[in-house]
Design a protein around this nucleic acid. Sequence first.
DNA 1: AACGGGCTGGCAGCATGCTGCCGGTCGTCG
DNA 2: CGACGACCGGCAGCATGCTGCCAGCCCGTT
Lengths: 223, 223
Amino acid sequence: MVSAEEQVTTIHGKRELLLRAAPLFAGAREEFLCAAADRDTWSGAADAAGAAGAAGAAERPAGLRVRKLYTPSVVADDAFAAHAFRVAAAGGQVRVSSSGLPAEMIVVDARVAVLGGTGPGGRPTYSVLRAPTVVEGLRALFRGAWEAARDLAEHRDRPVPVLDTRARAVLRTLGRGLTDESAARDLDMSLRSYRRRVAELMVLLEADSRFQAGTRARELGLA
Amino acid sequence: MVSAEEQVTTIHGKRELLLRAAPLFAGAREEFLCAAADRDTWSGAADAAGAAGAAGAAERPAGLRVRKLYTPSVVADDAFAAHAFRVAAAGGQVRVSSSGLPAEMIVVDARVAVLGGTGPGGRPTYSVLRAPTVVEGLRALFRGAWEAARDLAEHRDRPVPVLDTRARAVLRTLGRGLTDESAARDLDMSLRSYRRRVAELMVLLEADSRFQAGTRARELGLA
DNA sequence: AACGGGCTGGCAGCATGCTGCCGGTCGTCG
DNA sequence: CGACGACCGGCAGCATGCTGCCAGCCCGTT
């Protein structure tokens, strides 16, 4: 019934992170998870250490599953996108999530986790966590975010379309399950125009059927 | 450049959690976040401490935002559902997430976080985390899961339908944007039967149009 | 005024989706 | 065996969705 005390290592600055945590990353055997929402916190080399870089490819265990999750703003950065595509080319999976990622998170082999963020003074700060409970919890959260995210290639090829007010209105009526006739009346436009709008919408969503348009709309958070 | 060491408190068993962590929960001022995927780990009273229980209503600060996130299996439990609805009635927000939650997680006022899980020997184990970086990261992940989750009331009124193998196959063809004719050929069934399946699916999804069926399917994680 | 571009809405015709009805098959049970 | 129920598939007819064509309107330019 007596609680145990355990150390958490807090690290300030990227240089120190590399010194202290690189061995952790290099030792990845089965799984290397990484999520990042903040370009400035991004641990660069540490991140690369887990993936197969141009140099480290030979050392990368065959069965290692690499999964990286970034926010749209992060992948919008050119240098970053290059890194992401390198990871993907090396067999890692890269996805883009539109919601709720920590500034920086790394989980290695379900044993060690690193959470990073901007500390006081704008200095990158990282915490190394080893408690199984914590690591498992972070893995579960990662899994949830991962499943809701889109593949990087898809994100690049099909950026989320920008919809004007009317398109959104049409989307809403579609989502309400109205017939075209009711919907057109509801939006006070002719049936022909309404259907024109729907057709335009489906082009934007790259959907071949209304069902698919529905899933896409929801998928892109436009519902 | 020298790393700081900080304590993480690891707690075994629910009794001890209550002793050590109850003050943290009771001190919630602005925000009380809770996510749980595991009924057995659930900290019961500790959870309740943050919400306005029948007893604690008076002590609850007015501006406190309470958000609870559970998995479907957790809310399926009657006793648990009762708790959840009590929280909701007291002004807390309760949502149900179908994917990726930690066994137990609590974040109070963006200052303290508790991550719980089943430790060795099946014993509930909790870690209390205070590093700002860690707490912020957990909040961000919580936010992501929260946004993708459904409101408890909606979840109760419209439980996620169970789909057999064939229904899933139909769903897939719909998601691919095929015409009914191609889809039926693809699934090696007659047009009539395919449409029958689609109609059944739409009843299950409570959708009035195929578009709506698409959004629902995606919303429920069935796409 | 004359012109062109962008947007709208009617119409027509076709494609697709929806469903009631019926007959057929199969397996089960009495 | 016969009756029953569950499932399937064809057919027909209607409802809905899709789109090309054209005419009209507004607006800004020439």
